[in-house]
């Protein structure tokens, strides 16, 4: 099931900073796309002296057509969008609340959301939720962090040396298309049931998107930029440091963001197989012991956690890729 997410960013279309659908506001990206299409007339400022003397006033106008409707209009549009999104979520919650009460679904298996919320609150107050959350986060972040440390340098190396990339290509392709979850039993066999196996498992799953994106980021640097840098007499080290690496950063970050989603996704599987703490354990354990409310509380926690983590990474990614709009 993790496979749907496995597709690495295709840097062939650098116009879209985020490859997969991101829950973060499309308002911002739409606005930046609009302002990026600077009108060609900006270059028409008269040659010679008047051009030099002219303040960038004229261009400021043309290069930011996104703000043209005025502040009020934008705010209104944004408010409408927020309302739209909140409405959908509220609707879902309303259905969740009403359906069990109306007897449309079995109340025992799908309790109303208000009861789940109460159970969540109890879990949180009792400290159990915090413990599980902490255990999960520790594993996720360790695996994710290690994956970044391992995969980025490795990817840079593979991407930079074309023969290596060509040699390893088929193997990488094979692993990429093998769901990490399918290999979970192998990890349990080798590393046992303790923390090592879980962290290694997350590390493994997170490595692929980062590695593959880093490789393609390095390989797909605009050849003209390299040519231009070479014409300036830049050596291989300076070329890599000043051109290849910065050019690859946005693509690498797309991989990091995908890996962030994996870190939480695959951990759940690991925690369901053999653990004494963690959200995956909580969900599984609650289900087995017929604490259905707690099970839903765990599920809600995990989805909100995933959402927040992705939001954080999208924000960071955007900071690193502001220039990638053309």
């Amino acid at each position: 099931m993790a496979d749907t997410l496995t597709t690495p960013a295709t840097p062939a279309t650098p116009a879209t900073p985020a490859t997969s659908a991101t829950p973060a506001g499309p308002t911002a990206s739409a606005a930046s796309a609009a302002s990026a299409s600077s009108s060609p007339s900006a270059g028409l400022t008269a040659p010679g002296a008047p051009d030099r003397a002219a303040p960038p006033y004229g261009v400021r106008e043309t290069s930011a057509p996104g703000r043209a409707p005025g502040r009020g209009g934008v705010l209104l549009a944004r408010a409408r969008l927020v309302a739209q999104r909140v409405t959908a979520v509220l609707l879902l919650l309303a259905v969740w609340e009403a359906a069990p009460r109306a007897g449309l679904v079995d109340r025992v298996f799908v309790p109303p959301v208000s009861e789940v919320a109460a159970a969540w609150w109890d879990l949180a107050l009792g400290g159990a939720l915090g413990e599980h959350l902490a255990a999960s986060l520790a594993r996720s972040l360790s695996g994710f962090g290690l994956a970044i440390v391992v995969a980025i340098p490795l990817g840079l190396l593979i991407g930079w040396y074309k023969p290596v990339a060509d040699f390893l290509g088929p193997v990488l392709e094979l692993f990429r298309n093998t769901s990490a979850v399918a290999l979970l039993p192998v990890f349990v066999l080798i590393f046992g049931l303790d923390e090592t196996s879980k962290i290694t498992f997350v590390l493994y799953a997170c490595t692929w998107p980062i590695l593959l994106n880093t490789i393609s980021g390095v390989k797909t640097v605009e050849p003209l930029l390299i040519k231009s840098a070479r014409s300036l007499g830049l050596g291989p080290v300076a070329l890599f440091q000043k051109v290849v690496l910065p050019a690859a950063v946005p693509t690498i970050f797309t991989g990091v963001r995908l890996a962030g989603a994996y870190a939480i996704l695959v951990l759940l599987f690991a925690e369901m197989v053999g653990a004494k703490a963690g959200l995956g354990f909580l969900i599984n354990d609650a289900q087995a012991n017929f604490r259905i409310h707690d099970m839903y509380a765990g599920i809600i926690t995990i989805s909100v956690l995933g959402l927040l983590f992705n939001l954080l990474l999208v924000t960071v990614e955007r900071r690193f890729s502001t220039w990638r709009t053309t």
């Binding site: 900006a42 303040p55 053309t326």
Partner: peptide, 21 residues
Amino acid sequence: LGLVGLTGFERRYPHELSGGM
């Protein structure tokens, strides 16, 4: 940058400039 008539545009990124600029 002044010589080519781009004083005032030092902090612009390429995507914020027209082709001529």
